[in-house]
């Protein structure tokens, strides 16, 4: 049943409502996966009249997005948009993704690598870009961006096993492995909370995971 947005949310009661209001304008259905939040994230999502799934405990972003995507596909989604719950992405940019999905399997949002992006993130992203290009032949400048869209039929091929932030990179790795078509689209980003999201430690974990995926073949 058309285009679904999947939003994994963890303790996002303050930011979620405007994100949902924005996203609803561009997709047919929205599913929020509350990944074991301790605040009122689920209630905010229910009040916004979208589909809500709740993990009784926190499993991580990768697991939450997987739950949401599988639910959306079971309900008949044919295009899926992934967008962060913290309001760092502009829902107005969703149409740019959807128009490109007519010719490619997956579209990656790419943030500007300017002074707004924290230095650690800029450096880590550049490193992971080099890694993915050398190891898997996929050249996506922003390997960690959570704003993406893909065709539902591509999901079995890009399905990730990582529960945490490595999901984004694993998705890229799978794109390279299965030679899926992809495009990048420039996106605006607002950084709200520097204590959330991918940390330097996550970056190291992701790099190790990539190596292990390469060794596994």
């Amino acid at each position: 049943m058309g285009v679904w947005a999947v939003i994994a949310a963890y303790n996002e009661e303050k930011n979620l409502a405007p994100v949902l209001e924005g996203v609803k304008n561009y997709v047919d259905e929205v599913v929020v996966v509350d990944d074991g939040s301790a605040d009122g994230t689920s209630n905010v999502a229910i009040a916004s009249r979208v589909n809500v799934l709740r993990h009784p405990i926190n499993l991580g972003k990768g697991a939450a997005v997987r739950t949401g995507v599988e639910f959306a596909i079971e309900k008949g989604a044919d295009k899926i948009v992934l967008i962060d719950a913290d309001g760092q992405h502009e829902p107005d940019e969703i149409p740019k993704f959807l128009s490109r999905l007519d010719r490619v399997d997956i579209v990656f949002g790419t943030r500007k690598f300017d002074e707004n992006m924290p230095v650690v993130l800029r450096f880590g992203n550049r490193l992971l870009h080099i890694f993915t290009r050398l190891l898997f032949g996929v050249s996506v400048r922003d390997t960690q961006s959570g704003f993406r869209a893909f065709r539902a039929q591509a999901y079995p091929l890009i399905r990730w096993s990582a529960d945490g932030y490595a999901m984004e990179t694993e998705m890229l790795v799978n794109v390279g492995k299965h030679k899926l078509s992809y495009e990048e689209v420039p996106i605006k980003t607002i950084y709200h909370d520097r204590y959330k999201g991918t940390t330097m430690l996550d970056g190291v974990k992701i790099a190790f995971r990539m190596l292990s995926l390469k060794l596994r073949g």
Binding site: N51, V52, L53, I57, R66
Partner: peptide
């Protein structure tokens, strides 16, 4: 096992959009 259980519970208890 816990991950599978949590994901199954989430889907079973889904609150669908009215």
């Amino acid at each position: 096992r816990m991950r599978l259980l949590v994901q199954r519970l989430a889907k079973e208890r889904a609150k669908e959009r009215p």
